[in-house]
């Protein structure tokens, strides 16, 4: 199996957020990369657009099933102790560890608004 995403910003730098095994990790557009941060660092009320998952296939698959698909808009409803996020009209609870593996762009606009 190709390498699993390890550190959030690997040594190859911020321009290669995707891991080698999947094309879904391709950044959505060049501009958004500048403000790419882990979902786990957003505060309450902040929104981001999903651009990458930094994790292995098992977790990525689960995240996709739950609606964390690339280009989706995600909003942090509550951020302590774990996260509650709103995505595609559902509220999903995430542990901080998992939330740190979802990379979002803070750029407003450009994402699919599902609400």
């Amino acid at each position: 199996m190709p390498g699993r995403g390890g550190r959030i910003f690997g040594k190859r730098g911020i321009n290669e957020l995707g891991d080698e095994s999947g094309d879904i990790n391709e950044p959505v557009d060049g501009k958004s990369i500048k403000s790419a941060i882990p979902l786990g660092l957003l505060s309450e009320g902040e929104e981001g657009i999903i651009i990458a998952h930094r994790c292995g296939r098992g977790l990525r698959r689960r995240l996709l099933e739950l609606g964390f698909t690339p280009s989706s808009r995600v909003r942090v409803v509550s951020s302590f102790p774990g996260l509650i996020v709103d995505i595609k009209g559902s509220r999903i609870a995430l542990g901080r560890g998992v939330a740190m593996k979802i990379i979002v762009s803070l750029n407003s606009g450009g994402g699919k608004d599902d609400n």
Binding site: E65, G67, K88, G89, S90, D114
Partner: peptide
């Protein structure tokens, strides 16, 4: 299917 949330539901 929640008609107000169809994208998620159709999976």
């Amino acid at each position: 299917v929640d008609a107000s949330n169809i994208e998620r539901n159709l999976y």
